[in-house]
C-alpha cells in the first residue's frame, strides 16, 4: 500500500444509483455469482477486488446486461438503476448501455479515425443535430478523457495508431461521449504501463464528479488510490463491502484480511 492518502476521504454523496439484490449468475453449470447484494452510490468510485476468477467481471457485466450476449449465461435476481429494474422486459439493453457505459480490460478502439471512434455513440443514439454539435461533443469527450492535447492535431488518424495508454483513454472518452450516468471499467489499467496507469487513475478520480464509476481491479493499491467504496469478492460471494478506508485498515472478514495482506489471490 504505497498511497493511502485517498482512503481517508469521506463519502459525502449517498444517493443510491444502483441497487442489486440476490443476484445469481450461472454459466451453464458454473455458478459464478452467488446471491450478491450491492448498493452503488452516485458520484463515487466503487472498486471490485478479489482473486482472479471470483466473478468480478461477471458481476460488472450484469450492470449493463453485457452478459446477454453470452448464450450460456443466465442472470437472476434484481438489479435496479435509479429504481428501475434493468432486467425488466420493457428495458431495451441498447438503451441501458447508452446509460451505462463500459470500458474494457484491453483497449479496443474501432479501427476507424479517432474522431469517428468518439462520434460513433452520439451518432447511433442521435444525440446531435449538426456537425458542429458533434464536433463539440468529440472535443469535450476527448478533453474529459484527458487525451485532447495529444490527439487534437490528428483526429483523422486511426484510433489503433495510438499507444496503449492513449487507446485506453480514447476508449474512456468514447464511453463518455454517449453521456452515460454510470461508467463500468473492467481492469482498465491491466494492459498499461505505470505512467499510463497513473494518467488513467487521475482521470477516474476526475470523472467521479459527474458519474458513478464502478471499477474492477486486481491491484489493491489501485483500489485504495481511486475508490471510495470497495467490494471484495471471493468465489462468487460478495464477502465484504464497505468504505475503502475501512476495508483496507479494518477488514471485518478473515478472507478479506487474508487477501489484502497477500495470503490469498
Amino acid at each position: 500500500m504505497n498511497d493511502m492518502r485517498k482512503i481517508e476521504r469521506d463519502v459525502h454523496m449517498t444517493d443510491l444509483k444502483i441497487k442489486a439484490r440476490g443476484v445469481n449468475v450461472h454459466y451453464g453449470e458454473t455458478h459464478a455469482i452467488k446471491d450478491v447484494d450491492v448498493d452503488i452510490v452516485d458520484k463515487t468510485v466503487t472498486a471490485f477486488i478479489g482473486p482472479s476468477g471470483c466473478g468480478k467481471s461477471t458481476f460488472l457485466r450484469c450492470l449493463n446486461r453485457m452478459n446477454d450476449t453470452i448464450s450460456i449465461c443466465r442472470v437472476t435476481g434484481q438489479i435496479e438503476i435509479d429504481g428501475r429494474d434493468i432486467n425488466d422486459r420493457a428495458v431495451d439493453p441498447v438503451q441501458l448501455r447508452a446509460q451505462v457505459g463500459m470500458v474494457f480490460q484491453k483497449p479496443n478502439p474501432f479501427p476507424k479515425s479517432i474522431y469517428d471512434n468518439i462520434a460513433y455513440g452520439p451518432r447511433i443514439h442521435g444525440l446531435t443535430k449538426s456537425k458542429a454539435e458533434l464536433d463539440e461533443i468529440v472535443e469535450k469527450s476527448l478533453r474529459r478523457g484527458a487525451i485532447w492535447d495529444e490527439v487534437k492535431d490528428r483526429l483523422n488518424d486511426s484510433g489503433t495508431s495510438l499507444s496503449g495508454g492513449q487507446q485506453q483513454r480514447l476508449c474512456i472518452a468514447r464511453a463518455i461521449a454517449t453521456q452515460p450516468e454510470v461508467l463500468l471499467m473492467d481492469e482498465p489499467c491491466s494492459a498499461l504501463d505505470p505512467i499510463a496507469t497513473a494518467q488513467v487513475e487521475e482521470l477516474i478520480d476526475e470523472l467521479r464528479r459527474d458519474y458513478s464509476v464502478v471499477i474492477v481491479t486486481h491491484s489493491m493499491q489501485q483500489a485504495a488510490r481511486v475508490s471510495q467504496k470497495t467490494a471484495f469478492f471471493h468465489l462468487g460471494h460478495l464477502v465484504e463491502f464497505n468504505n475503502t478506508g475501512e476495508i483496507f485498515t479494518n477488514p471485518q472478514d478473515s478472507r478479506t484480511e487474508s487477501y489484502i495482506t497477500g495470503r490469498i489471490g
Binding site: T69, L96, A98, F110, Y120, R174, A175
Partner: peptide, 23 residues
C-alpha cells in the same frame, strides 16, 4: 473479427444489427 470490436460497439449501445453492418 476480434470479439473486442463487437464488445466495444455493444458496450456503446449499438444494436446487434448495427454491430454487424457497421463494424
Amino acid at each position: 473479427v476480434p470479439p473486442s470490436i463487437r464488445e466495444a460497439a455493444l458496450g456503446l449501445g449499438a444494436s446487434r444489427q448495427q454491430v454487424v453492418f457497421q463494424h
